[in-house]
Design a protein around this nucleic acid. Structure first.
Length: 935
RNA sequence: GGGAGCAUAGCUCAGUUGGUUUAGAGCAUCUGCCUUACAAGCAGAGGGUCCGCGGUUCGAACCCGUGUGCUCCCA
């Protein structure tokens, strides 16, 4: 068969993925083998895979494929997340482009559009996952809004409500004015910005009558009438209409005289009290704080303490509300500008200064988050966090890499606040709570059940924090209205490792028992609180068992310049384009080769190119080996040739004219090479195994890469390669294809497609690499390995010497070896001849004059050629080496002459130093002899 | 402001309880090669004050302290 010049990934990839699917290799059902379960972190259903996902999925596939080839029943569950805010925003945008306003639709109509959208775009990520070669069990694909999943989420909500862990209440929450929904604390991202601090004057009065307020309003046309004022500093002048007090520190003497007085809010002229509280930092601004309980969490708490009125001056879309009295309907930041102009005109404005501050942005919409008082649903976290904390602290769940995230995790869980789980959206699991006309609340899995509760008058308001005022129930069955809100997406994804096996909807089922707890969770460190911690909570709460044994955190994928990948920067490449360009294996290689666990990955297409080149290297090695196929010299053929000396026609067809048989020598040195590589392979396999167990996958890949490229291709294949158009011994050929197959197996988890292809091209195969089980690792023989390393070292040194002597590759040399142990070199003579292009090798007991000399350990090699040696250069080299050796000897000798070292250090260490000393001395002698020999 | 981490070759990173030939790899660079698998290649080479300073130790890239710079998390 003719092999193409270069490897062509696309056809191969499609062929093998289909084959694996047809043979149901990825499908798992419980059996007697141990399970190895991985649940995919479900990407957003209408999203595309970015490079971060690509890294995560690749890592998971490597682990899953490795497990599948190591005796485990591997099960990798794919799926996607409904991503309520993100998806709803996309659908709203799509409708807007069509000229449809969401507000004109009913909930049902909107959801119909949303599901259409999901059907249309939901397949994209699945296609990408398949293209990447991920060995997921497609029969288990789960979506967080699947029927059973939806029911599970509802069930959990009702259960937690009945346990008193879920409650409804008015709280200061994070409001996203763009998406018009509440957010959890975790969904707010803070950025440092340079803001402005505005200094404003508030008129003071001690008159507590309403008349004073009115007089002020009318008498001076709203201008600041006197010098009797207090100055406050604020970043948000547009919220002054919501001010309900001015607060100063009770120890602040500057303001001690203001006790019992009032201030007048500029522009709207509301009278507000001056209050005193330790909370205020006298050193900040003017030491006087305007208190706006509706729009700042600290002010809110201050308001609670001092029983202040709450005036909410903002609408849900971020425009000023009726309560603001002025600029009603104007967007908050536009209003800020207008108000500043008016404050200046009317003399209330003193000055402004720049001020470094932090602004919270919505993770989903990017809008500036507004603290807002709102009635929402919450989950008590204190009760949930205990077991989740101990599971990690006790080492039941291991986090990789190392302890790096432990402190953060601990801090978060110990300080976690209640989780706001309601969202003012339609896309998601609708909260199963119903209200009667009087506002009584009934929480149940179905409307029928809620109706029954209502009929019996059981509001089930078990939480003491329940904030809705109830009223006595009518005895007749009331008309119920369902809560319009949906649950936070993470309130569904925290059940993921259980509910993909129907663990909530059908608890205690056989599959759940078999697959849960899962083996390893691979995810980005950015969702440690959103998701990882909460899955541990849900798992410990509902299964009384951890959801996974290990967590592998991948780093963030950044571009070459270290910037985060983002759409706006345009630095996030398209996965399918990359696969088209380089092939899936090369993409996997490129992304893995430089991504140690937990470290950020600087993505550079150059590493994908390296992957593609590696593909090509493998392909060419295959071409070489295939050239030997059909040229094997079996014993029978050998005998045939020996006996008759005349080739049969069919033999002739196979080999053409053969002028000589493979020599005994060739077989002998090939056996040397085979023996060496067999041991080298075992050694590398053992290393890789350890690296897998430590989740150091990029290290493992490096070991395999260098094993294949350097040891197999550059050394082994060159050592066993027969001469041009010469036959190869059957045994050598078989060993070589066997090694090649083993290498492909070792590499398979990382680069599944090309390895499977080559494995099958190496010869007729009954099995597929995808499910081929790894053989047990044998212990490598150290003497054999050392011998191989010595040979490599000698060859490299001789080639270097050739280079330095200006010898062209084609120019031959005569090699003389001076060694106490010539037997070693005699065995590998023919390899040496070929590798350094020598025409002869002789053994000598004395120095060879006028030859270039190379010293390895205690042996010396003389290179003689027609070309005149550049003695000056050789001398310089030797002197440099001598210098180095002497320096080294000096440091060793110094160490050994230190009595305290000899007395304190371990015996092995001292012995080693002595050996180093002896070696260095021997080498120095060799170099000096060589120098003396150079004239 | 609180916490965590990082700093080793031009770049990205290894370096195991402190001792393993006066620091290793890949990429990039340079030199020589179109050698009968592979120029997407082959054979070589050069390149480091292990961030600065101080300490512990017979011995420090590694442990401790301190300074500087960067990253992340939390408020």
């Amino acid at each position: 068969m003719e092999l193409s010049k270069n490897y062509n990934p696309s056809a191969t990839e499609e062929k093998w993925y289909k084959c694996w699917m047809d043979k149901k290799y990825f499908h798992s059902t419980p059996d007697e083998r141990p399970s190895y379960t991985v649940v995919i972190p479900p990407p957003n259903v209408t999203g595309v895979l970015h490079m971060g996902h690509t890294l995560n999925e690749t890592v998971q596939d490597i682990l899953v494929r490795k497990a599948r080839m190591s005796g485990f029943n591997a099960c990798w569950v794919p799926g996607s997340d409904h991503a309520s805010i993100a998806t709803e925003a996309k659908v709203v945008q799509m409708l807007k482009e069509k000229g449809v306003d969401k507000n004109t639709l009913t909930r049902e109509e909107f959801l119909k559009y949303a599901f259409e959208w999901k059907e249309k775009y939901g397949g994209i990520i699945y296609n990408q996952i398949a293209k990447l070669g991920c060995s997921v069990d497609w029969d288990r694909t789960t979506f967080t809004m699947d029927d059973h999943y939806y029911k599970a989420v509802i069930k959990v909500f009702v259960d937690l409500y009945n346990k008193g862990l879920v409650y409804r209440g008015a709280r200061m929450i994070n409001w996203d004015p763009a998406a018009k929904t509440a957010l959890s604390d975790e969904e707010v991202e803070f950025k440092d910005v340079v803001g402005k601090l505005y200094y404003l004057k508030y008129q003071l009065t001690d008159d507590s009558t309403e008349i004073a307020e009115k007089n002020l309003h009318s008498s001076v046309n709203g201008h600041l009438p006197s010098d009797n004022y207090i100055t406050i500093a604020t970043q948000r002048p547009e919220t002054i209409m919501g001010d309900t007090a001015i607060c100063v520190n009770p120890t602040d003497e500057r303001y001690a005289h203001l006790k019992g007085k009032y201030a007048i809010v500029p522009l709207i002229y509301r009278r507000i009290p001056i209050i005193f509280d330790e909370y205020v930092d006298p050193a900040f601004g003017t030491g006087a704080l305007k208190v706006t309980p509706a729009h700042d969490i600290n002010d809110y708490n201050l308001g609670l303490k001092h029983s202040l009125e709450v005036v909410d001056t903002l609408n849900e879309d971020g425009t000023l509300s009726e309560a603001a009295q002025i600029y009603v309907g104007v967007e908050r930041f536009a209003a800020r500008k207008k108000i500043l102009v008016e404050l200046k005109e009317k003399g209330y404005f003193l000055k402004e200064e720049e001020y470094p501050t932090r602004v919270g942005y919505s993770q989903r919409s990017g809008a500036v988050v507004e603290p807002r008082i709102s009635t929402q649903w919450f989950l008590k976290m204190k009760e949930m966090s205990g077991p989740a904390l101990s599971a990690v602290l006790d080492g039941e769940i291991k986090i990789h890499p190392g302890e790096r995230f432990l402190a953060t995790y601990k801090y978060w869980l110990e300080n976690v606040k209640d989780w706001c789980i309601s969202r003012q959206l339609w896309w998601g699991q609708q909260i199963p709570a119903w209200y009667d006309e009087k506002g009584n609340l009934f929480v149940a899995e179905t409307e029928e059940e809620a109706e029954r509760l209502a009929a019996r008058g059981e509001p089930r308001a078990t939480s003491p924090e329940f904030a809705l005022e109830g009223s006595p129930l009518a005895a007749n069955s009331p008309k119920l209205t369902r809560d319009a809100d949906v649950l936070d997406t993470w309130f569904s994804s925290w059940l993921w490792p259980m509910e993909v096996f129907n663990g909530i909807s059908n608890p205690g089922n056989k599959e759940l028992d078999y697959y849960y707890p899962t083996s390893v969770l691979v995810t980005g460190q950015d969702i440690i609180f959103f998701w990882v911690a909460r899955m541990i909570m849900a798992g410990t709460h509902y299964k009384n068992a951890k959801p996974f044994s290990d967590v592998y955190f991948t780093g963030m994928v950044r571009d070459k310049q270290g910037r985060k990948m983002s759409k706006s920067l345009g630095n996030s490449p398209d996965l399918l384009d990359l696969i088209d360009k380089y092939g899936a294996d090369a993409v996997r290689f490129g992304i893995m080769i430089s991504s140690p666990a937990g470290n950020d990955l600087l993505f550079d297409e150059a590493s994908l190119e390296q992957g593609r080149n590696f593909n090509n290297k493998l392909w060419n090695a295959l071409k070489l080996v295939k050239m030997w196929e059909g040229r094997q010299m079996t014993e029978e053929i050998k005998e045939l040739i020996d006996d008759t000396f005349e080739l049969a026609d069919e033999t002739k067809q196979l080999f053409g004219e053969i002028d000589h048989l493979p020599s005994e020598e060739h077989l002998d040195h090939s056996n040397y090479a085979i023996n060496w590589f067999a041991n080298r392979l075992q050694q590398a396999k053992a290393e890789v195994e350890i690296l897998y167990s430590q989740f150091r996958l990029s290290e493992a890949l490096k070991v395999i890469y260098s094993l294949i490229w350097d040891d197999f291709c550059s050394w082994y294949l060159e050592w066993v390669k027969p001469g041009f158009e010469q036959p190869i011994e059957d045994e050598v050929y078989n060993k070589t294809t066997h090694f090649f197959g083993e290498l492909m197996q070792l590499l398979h988890p990382f680069m599944p497609f090309i390895t499977e292809e080559i494995y099958h091209l190496l010869g007729e195969k009954q099995d597929d690499l995808c499910v081929k089980q790894f053989a047990a690792i044998k212990e490598a023989n150290n003497d054999v390995l050392t011998g191989g390393e010595l040979l490599k070292q000698v060859i490299s040194a001789l080639r270097d010497a050739r280079n330095k002597s200006g010898l062209k590759p084609k120019e031959t040399i005569k090699l003389f070896i001076q060694s106490a142990n010539t037997r070693v070199y005699k065995r590998i003579e023919s390899i040496l001849l070929k590798q350094v292009n020598a025409e002869s090798i002789s053994y000598v007991n004395e120095t060879v004059p006028n030859a270039t000399v190379v010293a390895i350990e205690q042996d010396k090699f003389y290179i003689e050629s027609d070309k005149k040696a550049d003695t000056a250069a050789i001398k310089a080299e030797l002197l440099k080496d001598l210098d180095h050796q002497k320096g080294f000897l000096q440091s060793v000798t110094k160490k050994l002459s230190n009595e305290r070292f000899v007395a304190n250090a371990k015996a092995e260490v001292v012995d080693l130093e002595k050996k180093k000393q002896a070696d260095a001395e021997a080498r120095i002698r060799t170099i000096e002899e060589s120098l003396a020999n150079l004239v």
